[in-house]
Amino acid sequence: MTHLPERLLTGYRSFMTGRYQAESSRYRALARDGQEPETMVIACCDSRAAPEAIFDTGPGELFVVRNVANLVPPYAPDGEYHSTSAALEFAVQSLKVRNIVVMGHGRCGGIRAALAPEAAPLSPGDFIGKWMSLVAPAADTVSQNTMMTAGERQTALERISIRYSIANLRTFPCVKILEDKGRLTLSGAWFDISGGELWVMNRETGDFERPEID
Protein backbone atom coordinates (compact mmCIF):
# COMPACT_ATOMS: atom_id res chain seq x y z
CA MET A 1 0.00 0.00 0.00
CA THR A 2 1.35 3.41 -0.97
CA HIS A 3 0.59 6.73 0.68
CA LEU A 4 1.03 8.96 -2.37
CA PRO A 5 -1.26 9.45 -5.36
CA GLU A 6 -0.34 6.95 -8.07
CA ARG A 7 0.28 9.77 -10.57
CA LEU A 8 3.07 11.08 -8.34
CA LEU A 9 4.68 7.67 -8.02
CA THR A 10 4.50 7.18 -11.77
CA GLY A 11 6.11 10.58 -12.27
CA TYR A 12 8.82 9.76 -9.75
CA ARG A 13 9.68 6.54 -11.56
CA SER A 14 9.95 8.48 -14.80
CA PHE A 15 12.13 11.09 -13.09
CA MET A 16 14.53 8.49 -11.71
CA THR A 17 14.95 6.68 -15.03
CA GLY A 18 15.04 9.87 -17.08
CA ARG A 19 16.09 13.27 -15.77
CA TYR A 20 17.80 12.11 -12.59
CA GLN A 21 19.81 9.51 -14.42
CA ALA A 22 20.89 12.11 -16.98
CA GLU A 23 21.77 14.70 -14.33
CA SER A 24 22.81 12.51 -11.41
CA SER A 25 26.26 14.07 -11.17
CA ARG A 26 24.69 17.53 -10.88
CA TYR A 27 22.35 16.37 -8.12
CA ARG A 28 25.25 14.84 -6.23
CA ALA A 29 27.24 18.07 -6.55
CA LEU A 30 24.28 20.10 -5.30
CA ALA A 31 23.89 17.76 -2.33
CA ARG A 32 27.59 18.00 -1.54
CA ASP A 33 28.22 21.69 -2.17
CA GLY A 34 24.83 23.26 -1.56
CA GLN A 35 22.78 25.48 -3.82
CA GLU A 36 23.98 28.72 -5.42
CA PRO A 37 21.11 29.95 -7.60
CA GLU A 38 21.61 33.40 -9.11
CA THR A 39 17.89 34.09 -9.48
CA MET A 40 14.92 34.05 -7.15
CA VAL A 41 11.46 33.83 -8.72
CA ILE A 42 8.38 34.87 -6.78
CA ALA A 43 5.51 33.17 -8.57
CA CYS A 44 1.90 32.17 -8.08
CA CYS A 45 1.07 28.76 -6.65
CA ASP A 46 -1.24 28.16 -9.63
CA SER A 47 -0.45 24.68 -10.99
CA ARG A 48 -0.44 26.01 -14.57
CA ALA A 49 2.41 28.49 -14.16
CA ALA A 50 5.49 26.67 -12.84
CA PRO A 51 8.65 28.81 -13.25
CA GLU A 52 10.95 25.79 -13.62
CA ALA A 53 8.90 24.60 -16.61
CA ILE A 54 8.42 28.04 -18.19
CA PHE A 55 12.13 28.89 -18.02
CA ASP A 56 13.26 25.32 -18.68
CA THR A 57 15.70 25.30 -15.77
CA GLY A 58 17.60 22.47 -14.19
CA PRO A 59 18.11 21.60 -10.53
CA GLY A 60 19.75 24.32 -8.48
CA GLU A 61 19.18 27.11 -11.02
CA LEU A 62 16.18 28.89 -9.50
CA PHE A 63 15.19 29.64 -5.93
CA VAL A 64 11.39 29.70 -6.14
CA VAL A 65 8.78 30.89 -3.67
CA ARG A 66 5.14 30.54 -4.66
CA ASN A 67 2.07 32.04 -3.05
CA VAL A 68 -1.42 33.12 -4.07
CA ALA A 69 -1.08 35.75 -6.84
CA ASN A 70 2.72 36.04 -6.51
CA LEU A 71 2.49 38.88 -4.00
CA VAL A 72 5.24 40.38 -1.88
CA PRO A 73 4.03 41.99 1.34
CA PRO A 74 5.71 45.16 2.60
CA TYR A 75 8.54 44.86 5.12
CA ALA A 76 6.96 44.25 8.53
CA PRO A 77 9.30 43.04 11.31
CA ASP A 78 6.40 42.59 13.72
CA GLY A 79 7.10 39.14 15.11
CA GLU A 80 4.31 37.48 13.11
CA TYR A 81 4.70 34.62 10.64
CA HIS A 82 5.85 35.79 7.20
CA SER A 83 6.69 32.92 4.85
CA THR A 84 7.35 35.00 1.73
CA SER A 85 9.46 37.49 3.69
CA ALA A 86 11.40 34.61 5.25
CA ALA A 87 12.14 33.12 1.82
CA LEU A 88 13.19 36.54 0.54
CA GLU A 89 15.48 37.06 3.51
CA PHE A 90 17.12 33.67 2.94
CA ALA A 91 17.53 34.21 -0.80
CA VAL A 92 19.09 37.66 -0.44
CA GLN A 93 21.08 37.33 2.77
CA SER A 94 22.19 33.70 2.67
CA LEU A 95 22.10 32.57 -0.96
CA LYS A 96 23.03 36.06 -2.18
CA VAL A 97 20.95 35.87 -5.35
CA ARG A 98 21.68 38.53 -7.95
CA ASN A 99 18.22 38.70 -9.49
CA ILE A 100 14.67 38.67 -8.20
CA VAL A 101 11.84 38.14 -10.67
CA VAL A 102 8.18 38.61 -9.74
CA MET A 103 6.22 36.53 -12.25
CA GLY A 104 2.46 36.84 -12.58
CA HIS A 105 0.21 35.03 -15.02
CA GLY A 106 -3.07 35.25 -16.87
CA ARG A 107 -6.36 33.99 -15.43
CA CYS A 108 -5.07 34.23 -11.86
CA GLY A 109 -7.67 33.12 -9.32
CA GLY A 110 -6.25 35.32 -6.58
CA ILE A 111 -6.52 38.42 -8.74
CA ARG A 112 -10.05 37.41 -9.69
CA ALA A 113 -10.87 37.25 -5.97
CA ALA A 114 -9.38 40.71 -5.42
CA LEU A 115 -11.69 42.09 -8.10
CA ALA A 116 -14.71 40.50 -6.40
CA PRO A 117 -14.30 41.37 -2.70
CA GLU A 118 -18.03 40.94 -2.14
CA ALA A 119 -17.75 37.18 -2.82
CA ALA A 120 -18.27 34.89 0.15
CA PRO A 121 -15.05 33.74 1.88
CA LEU A 122 -13.99 30.16 1.21
CA SER A 123 -13.65 29.59 4.95
CA PRO A 124 -14.29 31.52 8.19
CA GLY A 125 -10.60 32.47 8.23
CA ASP A 126 -10.86 34.22 4.84
CA PHE A 127 -7.13 33.85 4.37
CA ILE A 128 -7.32 34.60 0.66
CA GLY A 129 -9.35 37.75 1.24
CA LYS A 130 -6.86 39.01 3.80
CA TRP A 131 -3.89 38.18 1.58
CA MET A 132 -5.39 39.84 -1.50
CA SER A 133 -6.13 43.00 0.48
CA LEU A 134 -2.48 43.81 -0.25
CA VAL A 135 -3.65 45.03 -3.67
CA ALA A 136 -7.06 46.31 -2.60
CA PRO A 137 -6.44 49.99 -3.55
CA ALA A 138 -5.47 49.02 -7.10
CA ALA A 139 -8.32 46.50 -7.31
CA ASP A 140 -10.83 49.19 -6.31
CA THR A 141 -9.52 51.56 -8.98
CA VAL A 142 -9.48 48.93 -11.72
CA SER A 143 -12.94 47.65 -10.79
CA GLN A 144 -14.43 51.11 -11.29
CA ASN A 145 -13.22 51.33 -14.89
CA THR A 146 -16.38 50.51 -16.84
CA MET A 147 -14.65 51.17 -20.18
CA MET A 148 -12.75 47.89 -19.76
CA THR A 149 -14.15 44.39 -20.08
CA ALA A 150 -13.91 41.95 -17.18
CA GLY A 151 -11.02 40.20 -18.92
CA GLU A 152 -9.18 43.47 -19.48
CA ARG A 153 -9.61 44.45 -15.83
CA GLN A 154 -8.25 41.06 -14.79
CA THR A 155 -5.14 41.38 -16.97
CA ALA A 156 -4.61 44.98 -15.87
CA LEU A 157 -4.62 44.07 -12.17
CA GLU A 158 -2.43 41.02 -12.75
CA ARG A 159 0.22 43.32 -14.18
CA ILE A 160 -0.32 46.16 -11.71
CA SER A 161 0.08 43.71 -8.82
CA ILE A 162 3.53 42.80 -10.15
CA ARG A 163 4.55 46.46 -9.92
CA TYR A 164 3.07 46.56 -6.41
CA SER A 165 5.20 43.59 -5.37
CA ILE A 166 8.37 45.11 -6.80
CA ALA A 167 7.65 48.33 -4.90
CA ASN A 168 7.17 46.26 -1.73
CA LEU A 169 10.46 44.46 -2.35
CA ARG A 170 12.18 47.83 -2.06
CA THR A 171 10.75 48.31 1.45
CA PHE A 172 13.09 45.53 2.63
CA PRO A 173 16.37 47.22 3.64
CA CYS A 174 18.53 44.34 2.43
CA VAL A 175 16.92 44.52 -1.03
CA LYS A 176 17.05 48.30 -1.37
CA ILE A 177 20.68 48.54 -0.27
CA LEU A 178 21.86 45.85 -2.67
CA GLU A 179 19.83 47.23 -5.57
CA ASP A 180 21.27 50.70 -5.01
CA LYS A 181 24.77 49.20 -5.06
CA GLY A 182 24.05 47.43 -8.35
CA ARG A 183 24.38 44.00 -6.78
CA LEU A 184 20.73 43.01 -7.14
CA THR A 185 18.25 43.49 -9.99
CA LEU A 186 14.45 43.43 -9.68
CA SER A 187 12.35 42.34 -12.64
CA GLY A 188 8.72 41.71 -13.45
CA ALA A 189 7.21 39.22 -15.89
CA TRP A 190 3.72 38.05 -16.86
CA PHE A 191 2.97 34.66 -18.44
CA ASP A 192 -0.07 33.96 -20.59
CA ILE A 193 -1.15 30.38 -19.92
CA SER A 194 -3.24 30.03 -23.07
CA GLY A 195 -0.69 31.17 -25.63
CA GLY A 196 2.54 30.57 -23.73
CA GLU A 197 3.54 34.21 -24.18
CA LEU A 198 5.95 35.82 -21.74
CA TRP A 199 5.78 39.59 -21.22
CA VAL A 200 8.64 41.33 -19.40
CA MET A 201 8.26 44.59 -17.49
CA ASN A 202 10.34 47.49 -18.74
CA ARG A 203 12.18 48.74 -15.63
CA GLU A 204 12.10 52.36 -16.84
CA THR A 205 8.48 52.69 -17.99
CA GLY A 206 6.71 49.85 -16.20
CA ASP A 207 5.22 48.68 -19.51
CA PHE A 208 5.07 44.97 -20.31
CA GLU A 209 6.80 44.03 -23.55
CA ARG A 210 7.36 40.84 -25.49
CA PRO A 211 11.05 39.81 -25.62
CA GLU A 212 12.43 38.80 -28.98
CA ILE A 213 12.60 35.04 -29.44
CA ASP A 214 14.54 33.71 -32.42
Rank of each mutant, 00 (worst) to 15 (best):
R28T: 09
D126S: 01
W199E: 14
S161M: 08
R32V: 12
V72A: 06
A49C: 11
G109C: 04
R210N: 02
R153L: 07
I42F: 03
D33R: 14
H3S: 12
S47A: 14
P51D: 10
I213P: 09
S133C: 06
A69K: 02
I54H: 05
A86S: 14
G188M: 06
Q21R: 13
D78H: 08
G60T: 05
Q21G: 14
A138F: 10
P137S: 05
G206A: 03
A87L: 05
Q144A: 15
F90Q: 02
Q21L: 12
G195I: 04
Q154L: 15
P173G: 05
T185L: 09
R66N: 07
E158K: 07
A189C: 11
A189F: 09
M16V: 13
T205A: 02
L62P: 01
G34A: 03
C44G: 08
E197D: 13
S24I: 13
N168I: 05
E179D: 01
D140W: 02
P117S: 03
A116M: 10
W131T: 00
R163Y: 06
Y164R: 15
L134A: 13
E38I: 02
W131G: 01
G106D: 01
N99R: 11
V97R: 00
V41T: 05
R203S: 15
H105D: 03
I213Q: 15
I128H: 10
G182F: 00
A120G: 01
A120Q: 12
L186V: 03
L4P: 00
R66K: 13
A156V: 07
G11M: 06
D140A: 11
D78S: 05
Y27R: 02
Q21F: 12
D46N: 03
L115C: 04
T2Q: 15
H3V: 14
N202L: 06
S85M: 02
E89C: 06
A29V: 09
A113Y: 05
R170W: 01
S14A: 14
R13T: 12
A167S: 14
L88I: 06
R66E: 09
G109P: 08
N168Q: 10
S94W: 12
R159V: 01
A31T: 10
